[in-house]
Design a protein around this nucleic acid. Structure first.
Length: 270
DNA sequence: AATACAGCCTGGAGGC
DNA sequence: TGCCTCCAGGCTGTAT
């Protein structure tokens, strides 16, 4: 599932094939993903040159003079640059046909993703109110400490709040808390400044590592079956409930926290 | 303001 | 083998 590292990997993979190219036309096979695709995408994008591809949180923006296409991959979406005559497969919902023999194709079986439009000079409502990028200097332990005072929600829920910091999904929240030795159940407001410093460092280290791993498959991006490849990275806790902790050997605990499956070590994480 | 949680959607896993 | 239920996931909208 696309977390921030995979979205960033997608951005880097698309860049050399899409940036500087123009859109010939847009083909919507399915007009509704999570939300209806606005007419602006079909009406305004054709003829425009894609000047840049940006990422904000887990959103991708294709910038043109007329505005920006705003994409989210949801949990099952993928974007590929393919030869224009590539046969359509199930769940290929949108084609952005480029001005050479390539098409940018959006596939999303579960349709949790979206394709929206942001006019020049505007900030789309979905992007307003987002917290800082986790890999930027704006994100650190002091920020987590300040925002968490007085909050009783579990620290894992707090860390996954996109108003606090963006891009930390269920997998990386679990992994970062393990690395920092913090129980996911602990009230956010009860975690010390020192431990938040360790947590912020863990988030940065894990995301940076995952992006580096995703980068190894960039060259496959144009091939029809080139799959993003950081899945095989070794996870310490996610998906390992009941299995031995890699640090102390005790069985890992598993429970639902904030409606999300959560795994942690009751001994190493306090 | 903070918290809780249903709902969106589909495919895969597991039970029978 | 097929049918059923459950689960996964990010994020929004509504209720408390």
């Amino acid at each position: 599932m696309p977390e921030l590292p995979e979205v960033e990997t997608t951005r880097r993979g698309l860049l050399p094939h899409v940036a500087g190219r123009s859109v010939e036309h847009v083909l919507l096979r399915r007009p509704d993903l999570r939300w209806p695709i606005p007419h602006a995408v079909e009406d305004l994008l054709p003829g425009q040159r894609i000047d840049a591809i940006r990422r904000r949180a887990k959103y991708l923006l294709l910038d043109t003079d007329a505005g920006s296409a705003l994409l989210h991959l949801g949990m099952s979406g993928s974007l590929r640059v393919l030869p224009s005559d590539t046969p359509v497969r199930a769940h290929d919902h949108v084609d952005i046909v480029l001005d050479y023999d390539r098409v940018l194709r959006f596939n999303d079986p579960r349709r949790f993703g979206c394709l929206l439009w942001q006019s020049p000079g505007e900030l789309h409502p979905l992007l307003a109110g987002l917290g800082p990028e986790p890999l930027s200097d704006d994100f650190d332990g002091d920020l987590l400490f300040a925002l968490s005072r007085g909050r009783s929600a579990p620290v894992k829920v707090f860390l996954m709040d996109q108003a606090v910091v963006v891009g930390v999904g269920n997998i990386y929240a679990a992994e970062a808390l393990f690395m920092a030795g913090i129980s996911p159940l602990r009230a956010a407001g009860k975690v010390s400044r020192e431990r938040y410093a360790a947590l912020a460092d863990a988030v940065k280290a894990i995301l940076a590592h995952a992006i580096a791993r995703g980068g190894t498959t960039l060259r496959d991006f144009i091939s029809p079956d080139g799959a993003p490849g950081y899945f095989e990275q070794e996870l310490s806790v996610y998906g390992r409930g009941g299995e031995p902790c890699r640090r102390c050997g005790r069985p890992l605990k598993q429970a639902m926290i904030g409606q999300r499956a959560s795994v942690w070590c009751g001994h190493c994480q306090r």
